[in-house]
Structures are given as structure tokens and as C-alpha cells.
Nucleic acid binder design. Structure first.
Length: 554
RNA sequence: GCGCCUGUAGCUCAGCUGGAUAGAGCGACGGACUUCUAAUCCGUAGGUCGCAGGUUCGAGUCCUGCCAGGCGCACCA
């Protein structure tokens, strides 16, 4: 919608320039926005204010020379006015909004989609929690944000693929196997002193019990070397399955589960290192192999191969990201927990060392989640292995509330997740507030159906009977969805979607309270049903980005 | 000590690439159900946008310094 206005302005500017009224050469960024206050029109632009300086004229005069070339008094633009220091305000006709409103049912569940992505291949990696324990609440936020971001980017026209990187090699896997082995023996009656540096969580006992159930005591008496491969594999498989299950329940799926171990097949890790070596970014020192990451923005060089000959995690991560690039993605997005932010510069350095421009690779950091119950903080201590799992939260508050709460704040602020509020089926709970609007509209339609009324199609409906100002405000709000999707996708900011929905729904509830939809006036009833059907579609599309259901009945 | 994120109403947070009079929810207070779902609506109160400078026609938004909180600063993953 704003694009349309922007187009009008661009044309007027061009005419003003060729007529010699204005001189400028650079591409102008034309900002169109919706004025906050009554009486300032439906759209407004600041181009005149921005141009004024280079024109060495006062902004109002610049505005006037633009306005000369702007259409007005036609079927779309009712009037164009200059206000304040030099704003150009557009007032649109009702027909303009009503005809655009009809696009909503025509587009249905595609309404809101845009094509700023131009089908660009994007790889979005998120969660990627190590298979050494169940997903906790922090992973939940990453999962919700990542998955919704992928849905958002798709709606914005990007060709997105999602991926979970499974860190299934390395010392941590041995530790997990060892932990399980110890618990196994403990459960079978042995007295065990459990070391601090192993995984102490309860779930390890669960895994050990599974082994007992399946295999009985057959490992007892054997050496650790003998049994470790089995325990390691069994435990990580079991945990990874659990993670998959939790994510399924949460409605989060991935296009690909990428195994770190698979990088070692065919020596892909070594090849990636060699490749960087050829470019002169790798050297040996103190018996270790280093990447000269300080040539880029990293503060120091990083070890790729330890003195022991083992490769670091960073090393396989290089191979992994090289693989991503090799697969033809022109945009690579990683979603990490904020505690990994120190890792960003070195990964950035890798991509640059590989010769890619900085904006190919983007790390999005998701800040921590604090669980609260009303006023009380729910304490979590990772050290003891006692943390709140995602599964527990889902059990308590449900998928919809959890997804909404994870998404409603900007990812780079800490999130207070109020369990008490999330599970409340009350107006204070924003998820229910929005879902209720959808259900309410469905309910109105059911009711109208009893009077023989069904929602009319865009070709048959007569919208001229809609005159209320708040209906037009509602319409403008709905028609903003494409812009919301475009902007939040380009900024990678999913939280704008729930904010948009909350605003929209609030206008709907208010409209509902003031105007009766189904009345004796048949054509007015039909027109309003059409309007509400558009609201319903807009809500449903917004909720679908968040992975929150849009119920017909509550 | 260095780096990243954050500081906006009592609480939790929006504020889109700087734009017209800083917004919402919760909480508080006061109203509205014989009427399509009151899981809703309407109204009132509540702010030196952490502090101090700077940039400019204009700053919550950009720059510098300081203060406070969170998180990092491994030949761990």
C-alpha cells in the first residue's frame, strides 16, 4: 500500500526534476509513513524535509514543487496537503481502501506475502543443541524464533531451508557415554562416586534404565573401553530422539539434521583447513595449528588443531560453514544463544577468509529467558543439571502460549516468561486475546448462518455501505500486513508480528463492541461480514507465521 | 580490564532506515452484559525516554563520555 504512494511520489519527483523545479542526482530514499494524529491524512512523506537542504530552499517550498505533480482529486487520492515544517500528507478515497480490501479474500492464506526475497537461497540454522541433554527453556526460545523466522522469510519471498547441526562427536559424547555407564552400574547396585565433570542430570539415569530394560546386566564387569562405544551411541541417540520429539510437539521441524560427524567422512574437515592454508591463513605454533583470524575482526588467532592432534569444535564448524556456502546459499543465518556471542567474530573471520562478503553470513543472538511465576523468579541452575525443560513448559502452558511468549519480545532483550500468565485463559493473556478475536469472528459467522447469511465473495459484495471511520482504520491496519512482513523479514525481527496482531485485534474488538454485524439491514450485514472475514484471514496468516493456532471456537 | 546486548509509566515491553503532541499490556481506580462469545469494551491516573555533552531545521532513535544490569573473553563444545 505504501509502495503505491511511494510510486506516486517518485513519479512526481521525476517530473519536478525534468521540469527543472528540483535538482538532485542520487537515488532518494522516499519515506512514507502513517501519521499518528487525526487530520494529517492517511499517509505522509518527509521527502521535502530531506530534500530541502540540498535544494537550499525552505522545506515547504520544496513540498509545494512536489505537490504540483502529485495526482489528487481522482478515484484514489482525495487530496494532498502540505503541513507543519513540510510534510506532504495524502488523504485517500474510500474506494482506494475498499478495492484493496477485496484483495484479501482473493489472496487468502497468501495475503501478506511479498517478494523482497526474490527467491534468494537462505540457510537458517537454529537450536543445534548438543545431544547431551534435553532441550531447556532457552532452546525453546531459539526454536520458536528460528522456526517463525523461517516462516516469515518464506512469506517474504526467500527460499529458506532450515537446519539443525548435531554435535555428535568429541569429548562431550564420551562424557555422556561415561555418565550413562556409571548410572547403569549404580542402578544395578554398585556404589558409585559420580564425578563433577560428567552429566549429572536425572535424564541420564533414565537412559541407563532404558539400557537395563533392553539389555539387562550384560555389560556388568566389562571395562569402560569395551562398553563406551555402545553407551555413547545409545545415550546420544536416545537424547536426540527426545529432542526431536520435543520439537515435534512444539511444531518445530527442520529440513535437515546435519551431523558434525558426517564432516569427518571423506576428510572434509581436513580439506577445509587445507583450503584455508592455501590462502595463507593457517600456521603452526607451539605444536598446534592456528587460524589467523586476527587478520579480520577477531581479537586473536584461534586454534584449529590442538597439540594432542585433536581438532577443535571451531575446526569442524569451519568445514560446516564452508559446506553451507558450497551448497549454494547466498545468505547464511545462524541463530545462537547470547552466551555464544564471543564466537561471532571468529566465525565471521572464517567466512571472510573464504572470500565472502560480510553480509553473506549473519549471526542472530537470542538473549536469555528467565522463568517467572507471577512475581517470583523460577530458579534454574545448570550446574546441578536441574533446569526447566522445554517439555515441562509445554506441558504446563501449552504450545500456543509458549510460542507466543517466546516470540513477543525482541530477540535481543532478555525475556521474562511468566508461566502463570501464559497458562491463564483470561484477557490478560495476549495469546488468548488474539485467538479469541478469531474465534469470535467464526462465532459471528455461525450465528449469521442461522439467519441464512454467508460471507459474500469479493465480486458480489457491496462495500459502499461501510462508512464508519473505525472500519476504515481497521482496513488500513489489515492492509499493512505485507509491510509488516517485509520489514520484519528484512530486519529478522519476528516480534513485530505479534505486536501487529495485538494492535489489529484490539481494533477489531473495539469495532465489534460498537457495531453490530448481523442486523436487519441485509446488505450492511453482508458488507460487515466481508470485512470481518478479511480480519479473520489477516489474524490467521499472522498467527501462522508464529506457529500459533487460530481456533474456530474457544 | 576488553567486547556484545540492554536501560522508555509502579511492573513487562513497543517505538519501523531521526520527523508532527512518546505508545501498548499488566497492575490501580471508575463504568458497560434482556442484544452476534464480557476470554470483550469504554474511561481516569501514571513519563526529566539511565546521566552529561555533541551532531541538525528536528534526537527515545545518530556520535562521545560516564553510571547500572546481563552475557562473554579456552589448545570446551
Amino acid at each position: 500500500m505504501k509502495h503505491h504512494i511511494r510510486q506516486l511520489i517518485a513519479e512526481a519527483l521525476e517530473q519536478a526534476r525534468s521540469a527543472g523545479d528540483l535538482q538532485y542526482d542520487s537515488e532518494l530514499d522516499i519515506v512514507v509513513e502513517k501519521p499518528k494524529n487525526e487530520g494529517q491524512g492517511d499517509f505522509s512523506t518527509t521527502v521535502a524535509l530531506i530534500l530541502a537542504k540540498s535544494q537550499k530552499k525552505n522545506p515547504r517550498a520544496v513540498a509545494e514543487s512536489i505537490r504540483k505533480y502529485l495526482p489528487s482529486g481522482n478515484s484514489e487520492v482525495a487530496s494532498v496537503e502540505i503541513a507543519g515544517p513540510g510534510f506532504i500528507n495524502f488523504t485517500m478515497t474510500r474506494e482506494f481502501f475498499l478495492s484493496r480490501l477485496k484483495d484479501i479474500p482473493r489472496q487468502g492464506d497468501r495475503f501478506g506475502n511479498v517478494n523482497v526475497g526474490k527467491n534468494e537461497k537462505v540457510l537458517l540454522e537454529f537450536v543445534s543443541a548438543n545431544p547431551t541433554g534435553p532441550l531447556h527453556i532457552g532452546h525453546g526460545r531459539g526454536a520458536a524464533v528460528g522456526h517463525s523466522l523461517s516462516l516469515l522469510l518464506k512469506r517474504a519471498g526467500f527460499a529458506v531451508e532450515t537446519e539443525y547441526y548435531v554435535n555428535d562427536v568429541g569429548n562431550q559424547m564420551n562424557n555422556l557415554g561415561r555418565s550413562t555407564w556409571l548410572r547403569y552400574r549404580e542402578l544395578l547396585g554398585e556404589a558409585i562416586e559420580f564425578p563433577d565433570d560428567l552429566y549429572r542430570g536425572e535424564y541420564v539415569k533414565g537412559t541407563a534404565q532404558e539400557i537395563i530394560d533392553e539389555k539387562g546386566k550384560e555389560f556388568l564387569g566389562k571395562s569402560e573401553e569395551e562398553v563406551l562405544p555402545f553407551f555413547r551411541k545409545f545415550a546420544s541417540d536416545s537424547i536426540l530422539n527426545g529432542i526431536r520429539e520435543d520439537l515435534n510437539v512444539f511444531g518445530v521441524t527442520f529440513d535437515r539434521w546435519f551431523s558434525e560427524g558426517s564432516l569427518y567422512e571423506g576428510d572434509r574437515v581436513a580439506k577445509a583447513v587445507d583450503w584455508l592454508k592455501d590462502k595463507g591463513y593457517v600456521y603452526e605454533k607451539d605444536g598446534a595449528v592456528w587460524l589467523r583470524s586476527s587478520d579480520f575482526e577477531d581479537e586473536k588467532d584461534r586454534v584449529l588443531v590442538k597439540q594432542t592432534g585433536e581438532r577443535t569444535y571451531f575446526c569442524s564448524d569451519i568445514a560446516y560453514h564452508k559446506d553451507k556456502v558450497d551448497r549454494g546459499f547466498s545468505k547464511i543465518i545462524d541463530l545462537w544463544g547470547a552466551d555464544h556471542h564471543g564466537y561471532v567474530p571468529r566465525m565471521q573471520a572464517v567466512l571472510e577468509a573464504m572470500g565472502y562478503s560480510k553480509d553473506v553470513f549473519k549471526v542472530l543472538l537470542v538473549q536469555f529467558v528467565t522463568l517467572v511465576r507471577g512475581k517470583e523468579k523460577v530458579s534454574m541452575s545448570t550446574r546441578s543439571g536441574e533446569f526447566i525443560t522445554l517439555a515441562e513448559v509445554l506441558q504446563e502452558v501449552g504450545v500456543d502460549a509458549a510460542r507466543y511468549f517466546f516470540l513477543m519480545r525482541s530477540s535481543d532483550t532478555h525475556l521474562d516468561f511468566d508461566l502463570e500468565l501464559a497458562k491463564e485463559e483470561a484477557p490478560e493473556n495476549p495469546v488468548f486475546y488474539i485467538q479469541y478475536a478469531h474465534a469470535r469472528i467464526c462465532s459471528i459467522f455461525r450465528n449469521a448462518g442461522e439467519s441464512g447469511l454467508t460471507v459474500p465473495g469479493p465480486e458480489e459484495v457491496d462495500l459502499s455501505v461501510i462508512e464508519e471511520a473505525d472500519a476504515f482504520s481497521l482496513i488500513q491496519k489489515m492492509l499493512a500486513l505485507p509491510e509488516v512482513i517485509e520489514k520484519s523479514a528484512l530486519a529478522f525481527e519476528v516480534h513485530r508480528v505479534p505486536h501487529f496482531l495485538h494492535d489489529l485485534v484490539s481494533e477489531f474488538h473495539s469495532y465489534y463492541a460498537k457495531h453490530r454485524v448481523v442486523s436487519e439491514d441485509r446488505s450492511l450485514s453482508l458488507a460487515r461480514m466481508f470485512l470481518l472475514n478479511c480480519v479473520k484471514t489477516t489474524i490467521a496468516n499472522g498467527l501462522s507465521i508464529m506457529g500459533v493456532s487460530a481456533p474456530d471456537k474457544m
